[in-house]
Write a protein that binds this DNA or RNA. Structure first.
Length: 596
RNA sequence: CGGGGCGUGGCGCAGUUUGGUAGCGCGGGUGCUUUGGGAGCACUAGGUCGCAGGUUCGAAUCCUGUCGCCCCGACCA
């Protein structure tokens, strides 16, 4: 390809609305253009990058015996209603774009494809003899994100590879799951990315085991906790750890203390000479259930710990056997709009009686109560006395008359000790999620009544897995991980071109001829070559070549008369003056050896 | 959804406080010079100042409304 014909438009200034470096470089290098918030056009250079990534993904998925397919983006609501996700994905902060057609039928733009693929499987996979099957597609997905940001990192339309597997039993699912784990590691490796696999929450997709693949980067939106021995790593949403031991409360008699105006744990500690780990903090939340009920929830947790909302949602959902649309903290304004001004907000104890909810306008009239282990294990503690401005001190669970329902609800944090080895300390870093694999189990097959006939002639729902890779996000994550002050430094395997031939002075007939010759030789040598044949000054061409990040550059310039060119490696700026033949041999052999 | 900020030529911005009919840099075009790290000079094209109302003799500027975009937050009791 010729730069003069490439529609290459690079920017010298950083566009005002790009915050992170990868987003800036992709815009400046002429890779992407924003069309609307969270909606991007992939320009020709970007499309080449995406095609390379897709090819790697295809090769690896195919060799793992997955079948490529293409499912519709526009989907009917019915299967989504069967799995109960229509409500969850379209109401409130639901992420599904949805619409009605001229007949009034409800449709959604696919944020994911479990419903569609399972419905198809149900029609096509009738016997255990056909299983297991893994299907995948590379397709645009649509999600109405609360806040799209950072270019392709969190956009509303994006390209995703999603795969779904169907099995006759759980062990077959587990085998495919670990095969996908290996496949994913090969894919990211071949793309030139450094990733870490972490234990993850399965989120609204549901299911049992799941693992995320993170590109570590300081601009990542996810928090990852890892042990220093590398044996444990998890998304903070899922991470578990040993909490620090509490500082025991000094001996004393059970009594009430005045705590007027002491509205935070910090105030309580400072004004009463106590430690946060001696307090049972009680948090009031409201969960919106799939049935649209508003369920008040009362959480007790040790004062120095933070609530992990993801763990809470999962625990609650399992307890009431109903999906939760969202959960929100309660503040005084919400209380008064609910007609519950009398609730002793700020001095709530774990024993708060359900009767305080009797005047609630829209809430259920009982609390669901959960207690974190850090709180339930305290022998003697401080907690709200359910009267404004009063707290119990030296109180016990027995004296409160509460038998806590215990669950792990706390947020693991950097500095905590690890479960697998108490001498290992958790460290926190940020990551960009580029892949996620799940063991779904039978959640979707059951709700869609998708069954096959087993060896014994009985109908049985499939065991399912699903496996995603954010193709467009991966491309930007690669830039986030591979750049310098001058621009992008693409890993060879996904660079839009492998070599760029720069003719320093296009008006010099000798340089021009030599450049064209080299370019032709590279093409014949099966190299993805680009030639900068623009009538531009050399400096402009060098700047652009660095910015767009082509891994190798051959400059035909001042040494052309001597039959020599300069070969430069983008990654480390290593430069050599070589005879044409030497340069060609070297670049062709280097490129072919590095092609994964 | 809450808070903050911004909409002026393709990009980055000034001008808005104090109303007087739009400017700078980059980019585009033409010509000459230059030619290995985003050249110089000259000429040139390109903007209903997001949109709609209002105030005024006069509005990019003041007022009201509206749309769009970006950032932060979304309750840690």
């Amino acid at each position: 390809m010729r730069v003069s014909r490439l529609m290459l438009v690079t920017l010298r200034d950083v566009p005002a609305d790009a915050e992170i470096i990868s987003h800036q470089l992709l815009l400046r290098g002429g890779y992407i253009r924003r069309v609307a918030s969270g909606i991007y056009a992939y320009l020709p250079l970007m499309w080449r990058v995406l095609k390379k990534i897709k090819n790697i993904v295809r090769e690896e998925m195919d060799s793992a015996n997955a079948l490529e397919t293409l499912l519709p983006q526009l989907q009917p609501s019915e299967p989504w209603k069967s799995t109960g996700r229509w409500q969850a994905y379209t109401s409130g902060e639901g992420i599904m774009f949805h619409l009605k057609d001229r007949q009034g039928r409800e449709l959604g733009l696919g944020p994911t494809h479990e419903e569609i693929i399972t419905t198809l499987a149900k029609e096509l996979l009738r016997s255990y003899r056909q299983l297991p099957i893994t299907l995948y597609q590379i397709q645009s997905k649509f999600r109405d994100e609360i806040r799209p940001r950072f270019g392709l990192m969190r956009s509303r339309e994006f390209i995703m590879k999603d795969a779904y597997s169907f099995h006759g039993n759980e062990s077959s699912l587990k085998a495919t799951y670990s095969s996908m784990d290996r496949t994913y590691k090969r894919i990211f490796n071949r793309c030139g990315l450094t990733t870490v696999a972490v234990d993850a929450d399965s989120g609204s997709i549901g299911g049992a085991a799941s693992q995320e693949f993170m590109v570590t980067a300081k601009t990542g939106e996810d928090f990852i906790l890892t042990s220093s021995d590398g044996k444990y790593s998890a998304n903070q949403e899922k991470a578990v750890s040993h909490p620090s031991p509490p500082i025991p409360l000094k001996e004393g008699k059970t009594s009430l203390i005045e705590t007027k105006g002491q509205n935070t744990i910090k105030d309580l500690c400072q004004q009463n000479d106590i430690e946060a780990s001696q307090i049972v903090k009680v948090i009031l939340l409201v969960a919106r259930l799939q049935s649209l009920k508003k369920q008040p929830v009362l959480i007790s947790i040790r004062g120095d710990q933070e609530l992990n909302e993801i763990k809470l949602i999962n625990t609650l959902a399992a307890q009431i056997d109903e999906d939760i649309i969202d959960i929100s903290y309660v503040n005084p304004e919400k209380l008064s709009s609910e007609g519950l001004e009398s609730l002793p907000f700020g001095s709530i104890g774990p024993d708060l009686n359900d009767s305080v909810l009797s005047n609630a306008k829209s809430w259920e009239k009982n609390f669901l109560r959960l207690t974190d282990e850090t709180a339930s294990s305290l022998k003697s503690f401080i907690c709200g006395a359910n009267k404004i401005g009063k707290h119990h001190i030296h109180i016990t669970w027995e004296k409160l008359g509460v038998i806590p329902t215990v669950a792990d609800l706390r947020k693991a944090k950097s500095g905590d000790r690890c479960l697998h080895d108490k001498d290992q300390i958790l460290k926190e870093c940020r990551g960009i999620e580029v892949g996620h694999i799940f063991q779904l189990g039978r959640k979707y097959s059951q709700s869609l009544n998708a069954t096959f006939t087993n060896e014994n002639g009985k109908e049985e729902p499939y065991w399912m897995g699903c496996y995603g890779i954010g193709i467009s996000r991966l491309a930007q994550a690669a830039v986030e991980q591979n750049h310098d002050n001058e621009g992008i430094n693409w890993p060879l395997a996904i660079a839009p071109f492998e070599v760029i031939v720069v003719i320093a002075n296009q008006k010099d007939p000798q340089q021009k001829k030599m450049g064209e010759e080299i370019y032709q030789r590279l093409i014949k040598g099966n190299i993805d070559a680009l030639i900068d044949d623009r009538v531009e000054r050399a400096g402009v061409k060098f700047k652009d070549a660095d910015l767009i990040g082509i891994p190798f550059r051959i400059v035909v310039g001042r040494d052309a008369e001597a039959g020599k060119v300069e070969l430069i490696k983008r990654s480390n700026r290593e430069s050599k003056i070589l005879l044409i033949e030497e340069a060609l041999d070297k670049v062709i052999s280097e490129v072919s050896s590095k092609r994964p």
